[in-house]
Design a binder for these strands. Structure first.
Lengths: 202, 202
DNA sequence: GCACAAAGTGAACGACGTTCAAGATAAAAA
DNA sequence: TTTTTATCTTGAACGTCGTTCACTTTGTGC
């Protein structure tokens, strides 16, 4: 019966993350409550703190799963198109769709308040960066002669810009723009920006 | 001595907002604590709740002041330049600078967790929208023949995109891009996008 | 089986947001 | 000015939260 300790520990960790994910999806980051998570995971209150440092730590692990799902969606969107520009559009749509359908989980990804003023842990940062790579690939295909470093920066910029457009339109229920209109907005933006990028190169 | 009641009330409200602002600037949105605010404002704990519905309500009033300051900065940046494109660049720089120098207050502006799933109050939404108008003006000057509605949508998009670029680069201490580099990133982005916009028109 | 180490447990703690009966104070009446 | 009344202010008290830790239970090596 060797390794049963670790096995239980792993299983508990998984149950806790799943329970926390369900609660976060339903009630948002603020809705995470240690007692309810423990109950749903079928363990004692104190056990939560034997696996995770605190609730912030648990939330980061939920975010890790969310990043994974988002990454999968982006990869799929990218593969669904042939030419680079269509890939970028498809990824933007996919990002938008993910934000709509997993609002609370998506919002939690970008919540600044976590960890107060401390740095986010390395293992978390690295996962987050992965999201840029799909954009980077398509951009490189779009402008093959562009130096890698510039492409990286541009990918980061493009990702951030799309994130901002989706973000402000999601949060701002103020004069809530209908979904179709936001999609149009995203497409117009992408085509204009890409046209501008191409013009700069040649 | 007529009207002393209202006078005191107004003065208390102002002291509370100032105290809350100071705390938020120092410790972030999560750092708002009713007892400390009351002490700093020189009133009893319960008095906070005679002026504001709850701490979220108070936070929104702090945000209102922040929007005011940001709006003033943007207006000043806009007036500092002659041609429309330079105005847009100056406003982006100003936005970036504001985010850097008032990080906690700026982050609080876009915290979604407030008010759970309820809509944000109207008086708050309207103030927020004002931020777009400066961008809209410069864009209209840039493309005088563009229909007003399209300009509005484009302004919203452009504002959101800049917000996203600043936002992700601020939050992501991950591989923190140095300030100069982010400024360059913003400028490159703006010029490319504006070039794309002009090309689309004809 | 037994002893030891490691992990699980939940009552207890301190701090929080929020409330409300009781006291204080401004306005109106005498 | 003094008294009465309406209103606002107060802070102790309540319920809930995240987190801890002395104690119990459980897995592991002999």
């Amino acid at each position: 019966m060797a390794g049963k300790r670790e096995e239980n520990r792993l299983a508990l960790k998984q149950r806790l993350v799943r329970a926390a994910e369900r609660q976060m999806a339903e009630l948002g980051l603020k809705g995470l409550r240690a007692r309810e998570i423990a109950e749903e995971a079928g363990c004692a209150l104190g056990s939560v703190y034997t696996v995770f440092k605190d609730l912030d730590d648990l939330a980061l692990h939920v975010n890790l799963r969310t990043v994974s799902h988002l990454d999968k969606d982006l990869a799929q969107a990218q593969q669904s198109m042939e030419d680079a520009e269509s890939q970028l559009v498809a990824m933007a749509d996919s990002y938008h769709h993910f934000a709509m359908t997993h609002k609370n989980l998506w919002v939690a990804l970008f919540d600044h308040q976590l960890y107060g003023h401390e740095e986010l842990p390395k293992w978390y940062q690295e996962r987050h960066i992965d999201l840029f790579t799909h954009v980077e690939q398509s951009l490189q295909a779009l402008c093959p002669d562009s130096p890698r470093q510039l492409t990286q920066a541009t990918a980061r910029t493009l990702f951030s810009a799309v994130h901002g457009i989706v973000s402000i339109n999601m949060q701002a229920r103020f004069i809530a723009v209908p979904e179709k209109q936001l999609t149009q907005q995203l497409h117009d933006f992408l085509h204009a920006y890409i046209k501008g990028l191409k013009a700069q190169k040649g």
